[in-house]
Structure formats: C-alpha cells, structure tokens
Write a protein that binds this DNA or RNA. Structure first.
Lengths: 221, 221, 221, 221
DNA sequence: CATGAATGAGGTTTCATTCAT
DNA sequence: TATGAATGAAACCTCATTCAT
C-alpha cells in the first residue's frame, strides 16, 4: 500500500546522510536502538508525523535527545530506517510469493500475491499506518526506488511466465496491480482491518485482479 | 484518489476555526482570494507542504502576510478551503454520473463512474497532486466526512438500482470501488498522466470493476 | 591590524549566504538594524566571540531573536556585515592617504600612511578590538580578500611612484608594511591606546618604515 | 607571533583547573599524552578550533574520550598545555639569544633576536598556525602573562646593556619589537614561509629594528 | 483594508563531560 | 585504566501569528 506512491515526482528536500550513525557494539546500545524504534512508531501513531519531534521520541524511548543523535544523524534518518525496514519486509514477502508462482495459472499467481501482500501489511498494521504519513511527508521516493523496483521486478518476472502473455503490457499491468493492492489494503486498514473485512478484501482483490490480468495480458487486439 | 483516505482514523490536531474570515464582497477581495489560492497550489507543487509558509504563499500571491490573515484565520483554514473546493468538484462530477446511471447495467454504471472520477481528477491534476500531501499532513478526515459520505451515498444509491443486487454487500463494495479508483488514478497521475496511460487506466478499471461488481453483488454464495 | 591576517590559509567552514535578508523599508527597521549592530559590538567586547549568541545579541538590542533573523540570515552574516563595514572604513582612509602621496618622498608617504591607518583604527577602537577576535574565529579570508587586495593595491601603486624603486620588491615590501602596521597598532590598542602611546607608536612606525622602505626599494644589491 | 597578543585585555572565560589530571608515570601514559597532543595539532590544522571536539581529538589520537579526560580535566586544559609548551619553546630560544647578546652592539642584538624568534616559529610552523586561532578563541592572556613577561624581561635586560640607552623608553621599545616581530612573522607563515621569504623577512626585520632601536634609545630629545 | 516588522515558542542539533561496565 | 553510551544544557534558526502604522 505504500509501494504505489514511491515513483511519485514530488518536491524533494535537501538530501542528508541517512545512514545510522553508530553501530551498537555494547549490549546497552542494542536496547537503546530498539527503544527508539519502538517509540517512533508509538509517537507516529499517537501524534502523527507533524507532531513527531526528536525530543518527544527520545522522551518516550526513555533516553535523552543526545542519545537519539548518537544513533541517527537526523530526524529523516530515523524515518528512513523505519521505512526501509518495513519495505524490506513487504518486499521479501512478495518476492517469495512471486517466486513460487512462476509458471502457475493466473488465479494462483494473484492469490499468492494478494495473500503475501495483504498479510504482511496486516501483520504490521501499526507500522503500516504509522509509516503511511511519513511517506507523503517526505516525498522520499528516490531513496526507496530500489525497493519498489524490486517488487515490480518480481511481479513482472512472474507475469512473464504466463504462457502467451503480451509482454509489452506487463509493466503497466504490474503498476495497476500494485496500486490496486495498495489502495484497497490501506482502506481496509484504516477501517481497523477486522478479520471478516480482510477476508472480503482478499476475495474482492482476487476477483478484480484475476479478471484484469487475464484479460489485459491476453490475446488479440 | 483522495476520497479513499478520508475515513482514516489518524491523529487529530487541535481544531481551530476554519471558516474564511471574510467573505469576498468587493471585487478586489475576490481577486485576492483567488491569488492566494493559486499561489498555494504553486507553492505546494514547487516546494511541498513542509516548505509551505504563509509568508511564502502571500509573497507569491503578491500580497502581504497581513492580508493573507484577513482572508484565512490560519494556515489550516487555507488547506481546508482548497481541499473542500476540490472535493466538492469531484463529488459533484461523480454525483451527476451516478444519477444518470440509475437503472442502467453494471458496465454502463462503472463506465460512467470511471469517466467522471478519472476525468475530474485529471482535469485538476496539479491540484490533485498538490493536495495529496496536504491530506496526509492534516489527517483532516472528520472535517471532510460529509463529502466522502456523499460520494459513497451516490454510489450506493446507484448500485441499489441494480436488479437483484445483494444489498448487504453494497457498502463494502462501494468502499472497494472508491479505493481502487483512488489508488490507480493516483499512480497514473504521478507518472504524469499522459493520454495513452489515461486511456489504459480507464480500460483497466473498467475490466476490474465491472468484473468485481458483477460478481460481488450477484447471486448465491 | 586586521588586514594582515586576511590572506591566511586556515580551515574554512561551509559557506552560507551572507547577504542581509531584508532592506529596511519602514522607519522602524533602520533603528532595529542599528540596535543590532551596536549590540553586537557590545557583546563582542563584553563576552567575546565565543560567548556571542544570536539570542544574546537580540536581547541586548532589545529585540527578539526572530527580529534578528529578519535582518541577518545567520550569525556569520552578522559578523560579515560588521567586518565589511569596518574594513571599508579603513580601506577608504588608506586609499585617500596613498593617493595624495603619489610622487612624494618616502618619509611623507609613510607619514601619511601611518597617520591614516593608525587614526582610523584608533577612532574605531572598540570595533577594531571587537572584530579582532571575529577575524580569527572565522578564517574568513576569501570573503574579504577584495578589501585587502584593494589596500595592497593602493600602497603598491603609491610605492611605484618612487623614483628608482626596485619594482620587483614592491609586493613583499607592501606586505611587510601592512603586517608591521597591524601588529604594532593592535598592541597599542590592547594597552588602551592612551594618546601619548599613540604618538609614540606613530613615531616608532615612522622610523621603522621610513628606514625600511628607503633601503629595501633602493639601490644596488 | 603569539606573544604580541598575550597582554591583551580580552574577556575571560570561567577559569577551571588547567592542570593535567595525571602525570604520565607509566610508559603507556606518555605515549597517550603525546598522541593526544599530536592529534590536537592535526585537528586544529585540518578543521579549525571551531570544529575541534574532544571526541574528534580522542578519535584521531586512537583513544576513547574517556581516556582523554583521564589526562586533561577539560578541553581548555588541552589548549593550555599546547600553548604553554609552545611559548616555553619560543621563550627559551629568545632567552638564550638575549643572554649572549648582552653588551653587544644593536645590530648584533637584533640579529640574534630575529634569528631566534623567527627560526623557532618557523621550526614549529604547524603548531604556530594551529595555535594562532586558539589564542584568540580563549583570550587566555592572564594565564600566560608569565611567559610573556619573561620574554619582555629578557629583551629589556638585553637592551639595558646598550651603552647610553634611554632607560625609560626601553619598555615601550620592547613592546614595539615584539609586536613587529609577531606581526611580520605571522604574515610570512600564512604565506607558507618559503625559504626565500624567510630570508627576506629576516633582512627586513633587521633593517627596521636596527634603525628603530638605534634611534629610539639614542641620544637627545 | 493593507502592510510588514516584531514576536517567541518550539524544533533540530551539537558537544563537553560523566560514569557504569 | 580504558571504554563509549548516555546526558542535557544550550546554540541556532523557523514560522505562524499579531498589531501598530
């Protein structure tokens, strides 16, 4: 659900180093990093990006601002870290699903894709929602391009194993699939993602995408 | 494309009066309001929400900050105004499309809906993209609930005219339709919305939604 | 006394815009700018560069930090403004002295130069001392190069009007003159520059420089 | 070149203990102290005082900050140590030169003084330049008064051995000599102190000071 | 009504220094 | 002793908003 926005062309902010500043070598460090991470999600969920300040994150993490800056060179780096980890998570999940769908019929492909995407999102619902805001706040597209590209590549490759697929249409179809997955999943999560809705969501997506991919990549024209 | 996010459950900022401070009664006033409006879009597009300051907007609009605050009680009110106007625009367009689709077959319903939604978005592509950031920035949901509800109502009513539709499923289906429309359209706009893509987008949506609504509201289970 | 250090080669800091941010258009502004200027000198004299903070300057000037930043984009710009004005002052004074010494004998040249340099420094003793620290703090050489070059050029040109001067030695001699003037004048100012000392200073410099220039630019070797 | 500023009247910072915390008794300690010392000079030269942090110095010295603070109670103590050592070096060199000039003619006195001063500065050019900034940063005058006084005393004593010297003028003349030496030498070092310039510098100073001392301490008036 | 100077709370970030391991 | 994680005061700077002119 985030993936769809990452090829956006929005205004960029000046780029700074986003690399974590320090590798935790002592025992204590690891805990601190985790605490900050956790705190960020909570603050994001409770106050929104606009009200997330480094001070507040540090406070909630139970450390001082100084400590915060020992691990992240700046606020954006924090967001970057969270986003990256999350995207990596989704990406991997999707990748596996795609891999095992090679050569399978369309319905199975879509089913696997939907399952992996929706489930990985739902599993990290808090982070997903928290991050959602971040993505737009910093139109950080270029920085995450690689993760998106990777997911696109996975799907593209999978679709290519469909016999008789119209290759030139695959990229567009991939984009449609991702944006549909994204849009609908986000909506469900905002409604609280109760199990029955998740089930309906998957069924709905299955109908849509199966029909779509089937027709779009098929045949004549 | 914005509609889908408006039932979000995100953190609220302190609510202030969002009513424009002064009704444009004189000729000049109208011009000023428009100038500010226009300037906001431009600044949004050029610098992003994060770098939008009231001073900058005023400058670009060719007036002083003081004047700005004569027309908007605060920054949020400005965003509110822009969002509202935009949503109103989409809403009306969709409403008309739904109205004239009453009693028509599914494919025609979807076709009309897609046309109206996509076209009204594309027509205001700049504003759409500019606003996108704002929507997340202020999780202004509650304030726009009425506009979203209205669109949902329009679609729901329309779907109700389908003979034999499973009424209890209509709300969910409506939500799916809207989020799909939203997700895909946004994606296309971020890619620049070249005409051929817009055409493909409409075709794609038609396939998906026609198949989806047809199956989802139909029959047995 | 400051001039001598401006061709230094010390570490540079990242360059930011040093241009004043706003031209005072209202009456009030002018006063504010002056107040800030005055306050800076005082803070510099009382607390030293190290303890000069924008807040402190603003406070002493009787304005808020915000106001400060309306006129100077950053702290360095403040220093730049003060330095530039001061150097301009000395530069002009020296320039006039050099101009009227063209074609005159060495003793008169030196006498005019010493008078103009020392007097203009003494007249602004507070600023001179205050600025002294600033110059070293920011090794801002490159930015002021033009003023130094200008003074060097003035002296060089003047020396060139000496009949039979060994032209190739003039640049070095100029540098020696400036650094001697600088070193000694600074010392006297730090001792409080009581009138009798200023007199002795001038006499001493006259002896040194007259002898030096006479021998260094003359004759055989 | 630093000496000239040490009778300055600049603002003081809160005085802390500047004594090294621990005498290097073990072999290891000595190495550590040296490493820190060396590192400081390098950082000073590379980044300037403003960017010198205790952490950075420790890093470059290959030790931890903690270790740093085992040897220096605070940052200022570090600067103090470096300055003191450097001044001691110059002071001793000048002292010897003065001692052996007792009773000699003016030209020899100046020649010895210039040689010793300039050479000892040049020999430690890096340190000299590095320290330069520090001197102004901390207007640490009072703390070094003794070293300066000592040099002044050495010169004064030497000048007193001049037959027929006007004793009451000696202190002022001493100050002029020192500030001239300082100003000119600094200038040359900032230009890189290439050998030929150093030679010219010495010649120039010889001319100036010989003429100056000769006339200033001589005769009638 | 318009102007734009002034405000100041609040955000980000740095760095000297301490102290548990 | 050495380490380096943690601290937090304090610096810089921004920007929404007010109000005298």
């Amino acid at each position: 659900m985030i993936l769809q926005f990452l090829n956006s062309h929005m205004p960029k902010t000046i780029t700074k180093s986003l690399k974590p500043r320090k590798k935790p070598v002592q025992e204590r460090s690891g805990q601190t990093v985790d605490a900050i991470f956790e705190a960020t999600i909570q603050v994001l969920l409770k106050d929104g990006v606009k009200n997330l300040t480094t001070t507040r994150v540090a406070e909630r993490a139970g450390v001082s601002v100084g400590t915060f800056y020992q691990y992240y060179p700046n606020k954006e780096a924090l967001f970057f870290a969270i986003l990256e980890r999350h995207l990596e998570f989704i990406g991997t999940s999707v990748q596996i699903a795609c891999a095992k769908s090679h050569g399978r019929p369309v319905d199975e492909m879509m089913s696997n894709l939907i399952e992996s995407y929706v489930d990985s999102k739902i599993k990290k619902r808090d982070i997903s929602l928290a991050i959602w805001e971040v993505v737009t706040e910093f139109s950080c597209t270029p920085k995450y391009a690689h993760v998106v590209k990777r997911v696109e590549a996975d799907i593209t490759t999978m679709l290519n194993t469909l016999p008789g697929a119209r290759v030139e249409k695959i990229p567009f179809v991939t984009a449609m699939i991702l944006s549909t997955l994204g849009g609908a999943t986000k909506m469900i999560m905002e409604k609280g993602a109760p199990p029955h809705m998740v089930k309906d969501l998957k069924t709905s997506l299955q109908i849509m995408l199966e029909a779509y991919v089937g027709k779009a990549l098929n045949g004549s024209e």
